[in-house]
Amino acid sequence: MVSKRLKTRVQHGGTLVLDAQGLSLHVDGDEGMRARIEVAERNGSRVVYSAVTPLEVRRTGKAADRLAYLLSRFDKKPVTDDVVAAARTLLDAAGLDGHECLVDALVVATAALATPPVLLVTSDKSHVPALCKAAEALPGSPKVKPIVV
C-alpha cells in the first residue's frame, strides 16, 4: 500500500527525474523510493536519469547487477548540446560554480528539458533547489520541483 503522502507527490503524466541519491536509494532497496517510482509509472510518468548519473552511483557485485537492471528499466537522457547550454545558463543564473556543481547542473538541465510536470528526486538541499529555481527562467522550460529524500 502506498502512503497518501507519496501519492500526492507524483502527478499524472510528466517526468520523474532521478539524481544520484534517488537512484542509489532505489538500488539499495529503499521502500519509499520504490513506491514513489511505482506511483509515477502507474500515473503515466516517465522515469528518467541523466547519462552522467550512473557515474555517481557505481556499485560492485550483486548491487552492480541490480543497478544495471534498474538502469535498463528507465529512460537514459543523453548530455546533448542543448543540455550543456541549459546547464551553463542555470549555473550563471544561480551564481554557482561549474566546477563544484557541474553534475547537478546537468541533471537539472535534463529535468528542465523534460515533459512537464517534472519532479526531481534529490538529497541536495542547496545547489539543486537553486538550479531548479533558475530553470524557471529558461524559455519554455517547465517548473522543476525538487523532491528532497
Rank of each mutant, 00 (worst) to 15 (best):
E41C: 10
E41A: 13
R42V: 10
N43A: 12
G44S: 09
G44P: 13
V47C: 10
V48K: 08
V48D: 07
Y49Q: 01
S50G: 08
V52A: 02
V52E: 06
V52C: 09
E56A: 09
E56M: 01
T60L: 09
A64P: 08
R66E: 10
R66A: 05
L67P: 00
L67Y: 01
A68S: 15
A68H: 05
L71E: 12
S72I: 09
R73F: 05
F74I: 07
D75E: 15
K77N: 03
P78G: 12
V79P: 03
V79Q: 06
T80W: 11
T80I: 06
T80F: 08
D81L: 13
D81H: 14
D81F: 07
D82N: 05
D82H: 10
V83P: 11
V84A: 14
A86H: 08
A87K: 07
A87I: 10
A87Q: 12
R88M: 03
T89Q: 15
L91T: 07
L91Y: 01
L91P: 03
D92A: 14
A93C: 06
A93R: 11
A94V: 03
A94T: 00
L96T: 03
D97K: 09
D97E: 02
D97R: 05
G98F: 05
G98S: 04
H99Q: 08
E100C: 02
E100A: 11
E100G: 01
